[in-house]
């Protein structure tokens, strides 16, 4: 009832562990699957090892988090060495980031053997020269997606930034370049100041906002993308309850990623949401999840 196909991948259920959230190691990816995720996205992997920014890298707020981890990752070589010996019973989507289309293509080529699909991080709001600075520019997005498509046979998902006036512009650029799907949203650029310290809390000062507070914004992004694009859309942003998940599906998302809610609710959040969706489908007389995808776009 919950199984879906998205970006040419077959998933047991529509829930995917979001990039950068409790996904540093093969064991953690397996844990997410064991606790109910249908697929996982790895931490964003780049050319060189990066330790990320100094702490504080996170601020807890009443309705979510602001993070500026700074893309910590072991670099593609160490990642490849560790993952090439691992077997997974579920799709592993490898997130990659680079400073131009050549770096993205290089990473996709080197990591194709360990990836069931790639997600391109075109949208990290707090790493200088990476992510969002590329992702706000439709021509760059087109170039990067095209270069990656040429470098690998694996499905390619372009992850979009909400920090732009009209997200469909970059969505359309990704689609035109041959992306198999887009995922949205990454975090929203934000800041928090401690009034007694009289300064920004994060060592990087600005970071990205995620969690329940961003949900309505993310939902709007998905809704707009679903209206404008023909390729699959993966909804991300603040999904914490099964009701949130159903909203995103109805707005046109074929699959959903869960990030901050893993911290708020624990890994069990996957099972909670899956059970809720299934109960809803039964109670409302639907026989499969496909029947509600995009249902709210009509009329």
């Amino acid at each position: 009832m919950l199984s879906i196909k998205v970006a040419k991948l077959k998933l047991e259920n529509p829930l995917i562990l979001a990039s950068g959230v409790a996904d540093m190691t093969p064991d953690l990816l397996r844990r997410a699957y064991k606790e109910g995720a249908g697929a996982v996205v790895t931490k964003s992997i780049g050319i060189e090892p990066r330790k990320g920014y100094d702490n504080p890298t996170i601020v807890e707020l009443p309705y979510g988090l602001i993070n500026a981890m700074g893309l910590p990752n072991p670099g593609w070589e160490a990642f490849y060495e560790e993952f090439k010996n691992e077997k997974f019973d579920f799709p592993v989507i490898v997130s990659i980031f680079g400073k131009d289309e050549r770096e993205f293509a290089f990473l996709a080529e080197k990591l194709s053997e360990v990836a069931d699909a790639f997600e391109l991080n075109l949208s990290c709001p707090h790493a200088k020269g990476y992510g969002m600075e590329i992702g706000q520019n439709p021509e760059m997005v087109y170039k990067v997606v095209k270069a990656v498509k040429d470098a690998t046979d694996k499905p390619v998902i372009a992850k979009l930034t909400p920090n732009i006036d009209d997200i469909t512009k970059i969505g359309l650029a990704a689609e035109k370049a041959g992306a198999d799907a887009v995922s949205a949203i990454n975090t929203i650029k934000a800041i928090a100041i401690d009034i007694y310290a009289r300064k920004p809390i994060l060592s990087n000062k600005v970071g990205g906002y995620s969690g329940p507070g961003v949900k309505p914004i993310a939902l709007r992004a998905v809704y707009d993308l679903a209206k404008a694009l023909d390729i699959d859309i993966i909804g991300i942003g603040g999904i914490t309850t099964w009701q949130d998940a159903v909203e995103f599906l109805m707005a046109g998302a074929k699959a959903l990623q869960i990030g901050t809610a893993v911290s708020l609710r624990g890994f069990k959040v996957f099972k909670e949401i899956n059970e809720g969706i299934e109960r809803f489908l039964n109670e409302e007389g639907f026989s499969s999840i496909d029947e509600i995808i995009g249902i709210a776009l009509e009329g």
Binding site: A22, T25, D27, L28, N55, I58, E60, L65, V262, S263
Partner: peptide
């Protein structure tokens, strides 16, 4: 440990997050 609240994955130990 970076986040301390089970979101960043830095404190991985086996299938566990040490902070959580």
């Amino acid at each position: 440990m970076k986040c301390g609240i089970g979101v960043c994955g830095s404190c991985a130990l086996g299938e566990y997050l040490v902070c959580r």
